[in-house]
């Protein structure tokens, strides 16, 4: 089961950030060459969040002691012991990450199908809303679950929905609208939607 966690555009090379998917806290990061990855947000050494770490080349390093990990989540280097070959058993739990239609998707293990492709649209923005997924979608009048579609401010939108908790979700918004005025109006409508949802307003 794929969960959208960010717009591809918002995670450039050498960036790492925390995301939640399927109830798990993950470190989402992109290597220098552009490879996207989503790992358990915890260094196995001392439990520090890897989302506070740093990316060099194709490896993610923990900010606490600089332990670095390669594409398979295997430990490459322990700076306190530069001559030590890290044992194979030191590994970060790796999730599957993939990109489709300007979105980054993650799954706990490789699903049978590729992630949903929203088609040729432009990324607009992501926003987090302190309200449950179903309430937000019905208030917005959008239909669908993982990829919800409809109109906001008179503009056609596709929203990739990331459930984060019972009363929190993130919306990753794509649109075919190319004009600046339309995009600004849509963005403002999303702000208004967030305020209404967080104030507890329900769909009529």
């Amino acid at each position: 089961m794929w969960t959208p966690v960010a717009l591809s555009r918002d995670v450039p090379p050498l960036v790492v950030l925390p995301v939640v998917a399927g109830g798990r806290e993950l470190a989402l990061w992109r290597s220098a060459s552009g490879r996207i990855a989503a790992w358990a947000d915890r260094c196995p050494h001392r439990g520090m969040r890897l989302s506070h770490g740093f990316v060099r080349g194709e490896a993610l390093s923990c900010i606490y002691h600089g332990w670095s990990y390669g594409a398979a989540g295997n430990c490459l280097r322990i700076p306190a012991h530069p001559d030590l070959e890290p044992p194979e058993t030191i590994r970060v739990a790796v999730h599957v990450a993939a990109e489709a239609g300007g979105l980054i998707w993650v799954a706990p293990s490789a699903p049978e199908a590729p992630p949903p492709d929203p088609g040729a649209l432009q990324p607009l923005r992501s926003l987090t809303v302190e309200a449950g997924t179903a309430a937000v979608l019905s208030l917005a009048g959008l239909a669908g679950d993982t990829l919800a579609r409809g109109h906001l401010a008179g503009v056609e939108v596709t929203v990739a929905v990331q459930p984060i908790g019972p009363a929190r979700c993130a919306l990753h918004v794509l649109t075919g609208a190319a004009g600046a005025a339309e995009r600004i109006a849509l963005s403002r409508e999303l702000d208004a939607l967030r305020r209404r949802a967080e104030a507890g307003e329900m769909a009529a």
Partner: peptide, 24 residues
């Protein structure tokens, strides 16, 4: 402090298994 407030689990594990110590 930026480290201490971001370690998981929050409580210090006294039994081995959760964390991987080295000679350092």
């Amino acid at each position: 402090r930026s480290i201490l407030e971001n370690q998981l689990p929050r409580l210090l594990p006294l039994d081995p298994g959760m964390e991987i110590p080295t000679r350092a």
